[in-house]
Simulated assay, not measured.
Amino acid sequence: MYRDTPDPWHLAERWYERRKYDLTVASLPLPRYRRAFEPACSVGELTVRLAERCDRVVACDRVESAVATARSRTSALPHVEVHAMTIPGQWPPGRFDLVVLSELLYYFDTPTLRSVLDLAVDALEPGGTLVTAHWNHAVPDHHGTGSTIARTVGSVPGLTLTADHRETDFVLQVYERTSPDGTAAPSPAAREGLV
């Protein structure tokens, strides 16, 4: 798809996409993150938004031309690195306090999906944030929809659902990794002493 155009889904142009990305970033429970990972970053539209809230962003895509476009789009952001990588076979080293899995998980069969989710949870620091956002309509190439992905992610041990935004077209969820003692991170209001 990238052979004929640098942005086959028109991610930079469509209001639907821009709104979804803005909602994704607005759903983050912390004002700032230390290190984020965004696999399947495509042309970097969400990457740029994440960079505003993160000290460091590691993004990747398996399509070289998408990586080139994302690198160009983020070239003025020295705290963003974009790699050609294919998950789950390739995964960046180190820990993250934010992992964003957007428009990605329905491409995987069940065993691969479980592997990706295990890697994401293992890479998250205790109290770290996992965000998932997925198209909620059936597509022949997809192994599910936003709703079916939500059920699968919700069954993963070690995660606590903190936000669940559902629309006809997509499902956006935010999870926090529970601490080793089983406690969840405080809510944004609790962090500010409001409750």
Rank of each mutant, 00 (worst) to 15 (best):
P92V: 09
Y2E: 14
A184I: 01
V171S: 10
L172K: 06
L130T: 05
V80H: 05
L46A: 13
T110H: 03
R166S: 13
V195G: 13
L117M: 14
R19D: 15
P78M: 06
T112W: 00
L159D: 12
A12K: 14
P111N: 04
R62H: 12
D7R: 15
P111W: 01
E103S: 03
A84Y: 00
P31M: 07
G144M: 02
T69F: 11
A40P: 11
L161W: 01
P29K: 04
H142S: 10
R191Y: 07
A189Y: 05
V116N: 04
A36D: 09
V156C: 09
W135V: 02
K20V: 14
W15L: 15
V139S: 03
S115A: 13
L159A: 09
V82F: 06
G44D: 08
E103D: 14
H79W: 10
C54R: 09
S115N: 02
L130G: 02
S115W: 05
P8S: 14
A185P: 08
P6V: 14
T162Y: 00
T129L: 00
D109R: 05
R151T: 15
L117F: 11
V43W: 09
V195Y: 14
P39S: 05
S72N: 13
P180R: 05
A66F: 09
E52A: 15
D61P: 06
T148N: 02
T24Q: 07
V99Y: 13
C41D: 08
F108E: 04
T86Q: 15
S27T: 08
V48N: 03
V100R: 04
E52L: 14
L46Q: 12
L159P: 12
G182H: 09
L117G: 10
P93F: 00
L113I: 03
V100I: 03
A76D: 15
G89C: 02
A26W: 06
D7W: 11
L119F: 00
I87Q: 01
P180W: 13
L104P: 02
V116P: 08
L30Q: 06
S42L: 09
R49E: 13
H134Q: 11
T112G: 00
T69N: 03
W9V: 03
L98E: 07
L46C: 11
A36H: 07
F170C: 04
A51P: 07
A133P: 00
A70Q: 11
R95I: 01
D169G: 08
T110D: 13
L159E: 05
S102K: 14
R49A: 13
L194F: 13
T47L: 12
G158N: 04
D169F: 14
R56M: 06
T112F: 00
A189D: 12
A123Q: 07
V25F: 13
P188Q: 09
C41E: 10
D141L: 07
S115Q: 12
V80T: 10
A84W: 01
E45C: 12
T47G: 07
Y106V: 12
R56Y: 12
S179L: 13
